[in-house]
Design a binder for these strands. Structure first.
Lengths: 93, 93
DNA sequence: TGAGTATGTGAATATATGTTCATATAAAGG
DNA sequence: CCTTTATATGAACATATATTCACATACTCA
């Protein structure tokens, strides 16, 4: 495997290796959510979630849309969600 | 996604999120290799590789076979290799 | 324009991670 | 046995990571 692809894959896994980030990505598979709802779902502070979302944004895994004071986050594309499903199958065997 | 599966998946991603470990797993997809050859391939010390291999062993991703003084490592099953291939396709899009 | 709500961000801190170095173990051959 | 080769391991260190806290920003409504 070319070094660039190896590193890109490692970076992708790193973005998804945190339980909370993985929960966020999984949750967003069902549709967009605001920070406050994500924080409630993860039972974590909004600040912590915001930091994680910034990471996911920088990795181009999620993007957001402002509606008034609220930011709604969504998966950047369905690719990641499909990937999680595939890995889930592997986990379950 | 159930919490147990979420955590298992995060742990799997964590095992694969280091560029060197990913290279090891990729290399072992072609067949078993000894520590010394893996170290040469990664241009890393044998001690560092041994530490990474222990991690992969603890995660049950690889196992080894002793032949005299040499330990040959192999993927525990082809699952992980298939998974890497799938993710590679996602990366390339 | 001032207060209140939703979110972002930087610094600080605690913990996790990866490597190195020194040493230990296992096997083979003399 | 003693030495050499191959690998494992533990401690120490440097770096990375995740959370918290305090404060900044963006927007809404009165």
């Amino acid at each position: 495997m070319p070094a660039a692809e190896n590193d890109a894959m490692a970076a992708l896994f790193k973005a998804m290796c945190d339980p909370n980030r993985l929960k966020i990505l999984w949750a967003l598979g069902d549709g967009e959510m605001c920070v406050c709802d994500l924080a409630a779902l993860l039972e974590s502070s909004e600040s912590a979630v915001s930091h994680q979302l910034r990471l996911l944004r920088q990795m181009c895994l999620v993007s957001n849309r402002r509606q008034g004071p609220v930011l709604y986050y969504r998966l950047n594309d369905d690719h990641i969600y499909a990937l999680i499903h595939i890995v889930l199958e592997h986990i379950r065997e």
